[in-house]
Amino acid sequence: MRIPRCYLDHPMATGQEIPLDERTHRHVVQVLRLRAGAPLILFNGQGGEYTATLVQAERRASRVRVEAHAPRDTQPPLPITLVQGISKGDHMDFALQKATELGVSRIQPVISQRTVGGDNEQRLAKKMTHWLGIIISASEQCGRNEIPHLLPPQPLEGWLSEYGATPDNPDLGLVLDPMAPSNLTDITVKPASVTLLIGPEGGLEEREIGQAIHVGMRQARLGPRILRTETAGMATLAVLQALWGDLGSCRHTIKEP
Rank of each mutant, 00 (worst) to 15 (best):
Q75W: 12
A68G: 01
H69W: 15
R33D: 12
V31G: 13
Q75N: 09
A57T: 03
A36P: 09
T53P: 03
A57L: 01
T51E: 10
P76I: 06
A52G: 11
G48Y: 09
L54V: 04
L40Y: 09
A68V: 01
T74M: 08
R65I: 01
V28A: 05
R26G: 02
R35P: 01
Q46S: 15
A61P: 02
V64W: 00
H25R: 12
F43E: 01
D73A: 11
L78F: 14
A36I: 03
A70I: 08
V55H: 04
L78E: 07
Q30W: 02
R23P: 01
V66E: 04
Y50D: 01
V29E: 00
R60F: 11
Q56G: 03
P76W: 07
A61T: 14
L34F: 09
Q75T: 15
G47K: 14
L40R: 02
N44A: 05
P79V: 12
T74F: 05
R60A: 13
Q56V: 15
V31K: 13
L78I: 12
G37A: 03
A36T: 07
Q46L: 14
T74H: 03
R63Q: 13
P39Y: 10
P39G: 10
R33M: 11
L78D: 03
Q46W: 06
R60P: 06
G48N: 05
E49L: 01
T51P: 03
G37Y: 06
A61M: 11
A36Q: 11
T51A: 14
F43Q: 00
N44H: 06
H27G: 00
G48I: 05
L42Y: 10
R26Q: 12
A61Q: 15
H25Y: 09
I41D: 01
V64K: 00
V64G: 03
R35H: 07
Q56L: 08
P79T: 11
A68N: 07
P77G: 14
V66D: 00
F43G: 00
L42E: 02
A61H: 15
P39D: 08
P79C: 07
A38S: 15
P79E: 03
Q46P: 02
V29R: 00
R33I: 13
R23I: 09
E49Y: 00
G47P: 12
H69F: 15
S62F: 13
R23S: 09
P76L: 09
P71D: 10
V31R: 13
R23V: 12
A36C: 06
P71H: 08
L40K: 05
R59N: 07
G47A: 13
Y50T: 02
R23T: 13
P71N: 08
P77L: 10
A38R: 03
V29S: 00
E67N: 08
Y50L: 00
Q30N: 13
E67C: 08
R23A: 15
Y50E: 04
V28I: 15
E49I: 00
Q46K: 14
L42R: 05
L40M: 10
G48W: 07
D73V: 12
G47N: 13
A57F: 04
T51Y: 04
E49C: 02
A61W: 09
R33T: 10
V28W: 00
R63A: 05
L42M: 15
R35Q: 13
A70S: 10
A70Y: 08
